[in-house]
Computed example of a mutant assay.
Amino acid sequence: METNATGTNQLGLQNAGGASASLAGNFNDFLNLLTAQIQNQDPLSPMDSNEFTSQLVQFSAVEQAITTNSNLSSLIALEKANQITSAVGFLGTKIEAFGSTNSLTNGQAEFSYGLGANATSTQIIILDDVGQTIFNTAGETASGHHTFVWNGLDNNGTAQPDGKYSILVTSLDASGDPINTETGIVGTVTGFETTGDGSILLSLNGIGIPISDIVSVSHDQSGSGI
């Protein structure tokens, strides 16, 4: 389980703090130099203050930019912490998520599918990791949410090895036209990880699932479904 995003944000906060401290030191040196020049200027030929005024404005702009960056780093770190806290809450729960590929584990893989309307025929096809048909059977024809638990046997009754398999659902109406279908996968969350862009993937039977793809969460066999 990776939580590298938090460490990265802490580094960002440290960098912002270092930049702010460096700017403060340079600004103090600038003020000391300005004070010394004012004290030692020729009364008959006073120095031009426009340049110093311009530099003061530049220092102020840089200081505001560093402060803004520090605040953004703090917000990002807080958001990452909230995401990790949310992910921890999913551990051990049973979820249903959009998708078509699930893992066959100990001779079982659970899928779900939804039909946009009543169908006259529905076909469920299980494909292996290279897209070859392993198993097919008739599915439900009523509109709405349905579940399908594959027992890991192919069309010849031979047990298939554990691994990743995909479901394909096709449904036809009375006119022979295809009906809109959606598929999902079901399983228990066993972990999570952060990706390179900082997003979090839940581990569902060894498959990474974005939190945004979750359809339902439960501690039992029930679920709202697709």
Rank of each mutant, 00 (worst) to 15 (best):
E51S: 13
V57I: 14
I211D: 04
S54P: 06
G25P: 00
Q37H: 11
D177S: 15
N26A: 15
A117F: 05
G198W: 01
S166A: 11
Q37P: 05
T122S: 14
V57E: 08
D29K: 11
Q108F: 01
P210N: 14
E63C: 10
S45V: 11
K80Q: 11
L127S: 06
T181A: 04
S45F: 13
S49R: 11
Q37E: 14
S224R: 08
Q55K: 14
V189Y: 02
L168G: 02
S112L: 07
H146R: 06
T141I: 12
K164A: 09
A119F: 03
N32E: 15
T3H: 01
Y113W: 07
T181S: 05
P178F: 09
N136Y: 04
E63L: 13
T181Y: 04
F90L: 05
T53H: 07
I185T: 02
I38R: 13
A21N: 09
Y165C: 08
F90T: 00
N71S: 15
L91Q: 01
T137P: 00
G116P: 02
A109F: 04
A36M: 14
E193Y: 05
E110N: 12
A119P: 04
I214A: 06
D42P: 09
F59V: 05
G107C: 06
M1A: 10
L56T: 00
A81M: 06
S171E: 03
D173Q: 08
D128H: 08
N32I: 14
N40D: 15
N155F: 10
F111S: 03
A21K: 09
Q58W: 11
D29W: 08
L201S: 00
A65S: 15
I167T: 03
S203N: 15
T190Q: 01
N26P: 06
K94I: 07
L168N: 00
T188E: 08
Y113T: 01
G89P: 04
L78D: 12
A16G: 05
A19K: 08
T190F: 02
T158G: 09
I124Y: 05
V62C: 08
